[in-house]
Simulated assay, not measured.
Amino acid sequence: MSTEQYLVRLEYAEPAEVSQDELSALRRAERERAHELQRSGMLRELWRAPGRRASWSLWSVSGATALHEALTSLPMWPWITATVEVLASHPNRLAEGK
């Protein structure tokens, strides 16, 4: 099965309507889900944007629908704004081992 690469920027807005205990539980669940997605190979890289509630990530999935399903499985999804860029190979990129 072929995969597509996506660069995803996620901006998090902490929900005002949940308690601190609920927010802590959401953060733990978010971390666990991110680890599952990394172990599956779908979430290839993950970076934070220092000083902000934001992240950049590199995804390798079968297509846009698979990416959407993975992103919406994140427990914090209702409070996330996502920007998605599909990536294509660059003709000047060196092949591995060259």
Rank of each mutant, 00 (worst) to 15 (best):
L37V: 07
L87F: 01
I80K: 04
E36P: 04
R52S: 07
A64R: 13
E36I: 03
L87M: 15
A49Q: 12
E30A: 13
E17W: 09
W56N: 04
V61C: 04
L58I: 12
G63C: 05
M1R: 05
E45K: 15
P50M: 02
P75L: 07
T72W: 10
S24D: 13
E85S: 13
E32D: 15
A49N: 08
P75F: 03
R48S: 06
S60W: 00
E22S: 14
S89H: 07
Q20E: 12
L58N: 06
R52C: 00
M76C: 13
L58W: 07
E22G: 04
V18N: 02
L74Y: 04
L37Y: 00
P91E: 10
A70E: 02
Q20H: 06
R39S: 11
L67F: 11
V18R: 09
L37W: 01
V8F: 07
M76V: 13
L43S: 03
A70R: 01
V61S: 01
L26T: 11
L10I: 11
L23V: 01
S62Y: 00
A29I: 04
N92F: 14
Q38S: 14
E69S: 10
V84F: 07
A54R: 12
A16G: 15
R53M: 09
W59C: 10
A16H: 08
E36R: 15
R48W: 09
P75G: 12
G51H: 03
G51Y: 02
L94D: 08
R93E: 12
S73H: 02
R53I: 00
V86H: 14
G97I: 00
R53A: 08
H35L: 15
P78S: 05
R48I: 05
E11I: 03
Q5R: 14
R93C: 07
S24W: 00
L87I: 14
E30G: 10
E4G: 02
T3F: 08
L74G: 08
A25G: 13
S19H: 04
R48K: 06
S2G: 06
R52W: 08
T65I: 09
A54D: 01
L71C: 10
S73D: 07
E32G: 03
Q38G: 11
R31F: 09
L58Y: 06
K98I: 00
V8D: 13
S60E: 13
I80M: 15
L7F: 15
R53G: 00
G41H: 03
E96Q: 01
Q20N: 03
G63A: 03
E30Y: 06
S60L: 08
A25I: 01
S62E: 13
Q38F: 07
R48Y: 06
H68N: 14
E30R: 04
T3M: 10
L37D: 09
L43H: 03
G63L: 06
P15K: 11
N92P: 00
W79E: 00
Y6M: 01
T65H: 13
W47A: 13
R53L: 12
S24T: 09
P91A: 02
R33F: 00
P15H: 05
R44L: 14
R31M: 08
A54V: 01
V84I: 15
L26F: 09
E36G: 11
E11Y: 00
L7S: 08
R44F: 05
